[in-house]
């Protein structure tokens, strides 16, 4: 167990260094001068040259990357070129908005997906099952930007049911969360459905049925508990992905999360923030993978065996 953990940790570290290296190279490969970004469009050549020297931008790339890794090793992600704000501080101040959005969406979509997934498995092949399948397929296929814009226009602007954008209260979170529910909810309903169908065919269900366990108890206790095991795995990794920034949804609804931070930094060629958000997202996904991998031993006794 300990050996397995150590190997996983080493791999996780290598993935993070790889993500740092890749984001560093991409941020540097994009044309544009960071010194010019810091100085502003109208600044004179003297000021720009001074900034270039201070940031060691005239050094060879390998030297710059080495310096960056050294700082990273000491927990320093650097400062934003545009706002001069420490990257760690920028990420941490944006994280609550992303976390609030992701968790709100997750609660809503799971609250919908579980009963829908269970019932479509129970009534497999009926019209209800087919309609849900169509809705789920449409939801999965729709582009996030389009869904966000459509819901914003129809439900906020036209109907006035929600605020259009911004984040001043919990109400402001509902429409962005609904966007994620439309995009992801169907997928989870299908996932639960597939697992439920498989579980319902198992012999222990037949035994429980023979012992006279009631229909709803059979579905929501005996079958669902088993069907949710693979769902939890995927959910953990998906949540980590969301926490790393919901780029389009956050941007359309002007939510000050990691996604808008990442997008703005790309427009501004703000390399420290680009790298910081990439490393942060990678860290979340790697950690989630690690945690899920280890938790699996406890969740599913068959693996331990």
């Amino acid at each position: 167990m300990l050996k397995r953990l150590c190997i996983r940790l080493v791999w996780s570290l290598l993935v993070l260094i790889g993500a740092a290296g890749l984001s560093f190279l991409i941020a540097r490969a994009v044309p544009g001068d960071p010194a010019r970004v810091i100085a502003g469009a109208k600044a004179d050549a003297e000021t720009i040259a001074l900034i270039r020297t201070e940031l060691h931008l005239n050094d060879p790339l390998w030297k710059q990357f080495g310096r960056y890794l050294w700082q990273l090793g000491h927990g320093d992600l650097g400062k934003s070129y545009v706002t001069n704000q420490p990257v760690t501080e920028a990420i941490l101040t944006r994280f609550p908005a992303t976390a609030a959005l992701s968790l709100t969406a997750l609660v809503i979509w799971m609250a919908l997906a579980i009963p829908v997934g269970v019932l479509t498995a129970r009534y497999q092949g009926t019209y209800f099952d087919r309609i849900v399948l169509v809705i789920a397929t449409i939801g999965i296929s729709l582009p996030a930007l389009w869904v966000a814009r459509l819901l914003q226009y129809e439900l906020a602007y036209k109907a006035g049911l929600f605020p259009v954008a911004g984040l001043q209260s919990f109400r402001h979170l509902l429409l962005p969360a609904l966007t994620l529910v439309v995009l992801v909810g169907g997928y989870y309903a299908r996932l639960i459905h597939t697992n439920m169908v498989e579980v319902l065919r198992m012999s222990f269900i037949r035994t429980a049925e023979a012992k006279g366990v009631s229909g709803s108890r059979l579905l929501f206790v005996h079958a669902l508990r088993n069907a949710l095991i693979p769902v939890v795995t995927i959910l953990g990794i998906d949540l980590a992905g969301l926490l790393g920034g919901v780029v389009f949804t956050e941007n359309v609804f002007a939510l000050p999360g990691i996604g808008t931070l990442a997008l703005q930094s790309v427009f501004n060629l703000d390399a420290p923030i680009i790298m910081g958000t990439v490393i942060f997202s990678a860290f979340l996904v790697v950690s989630a993978n690690l945690v899920v991998d280890l938790l699996y031993n406890f969740i599913d006794p068959r693996i331990r065996g």
Binding site: Q152, Y153, A156, Y157, G160, P163, V164, A165, G166, Q168, N251, V252, F253, A254, L255, P256, T260, Q264
Partner: peptide, 18 residues
């Protein structure tokens, strides 16, 4: 001032009185 609002979104917010 609310930050991060695109032009078209700002127009919608304006017309809703936000």
């Amino acid at each position: 001032a609310t930050i991060g609002i695109e032009d078209s979104v700002a127009q919608m917010m304006f017309e809703r009185g936000e």
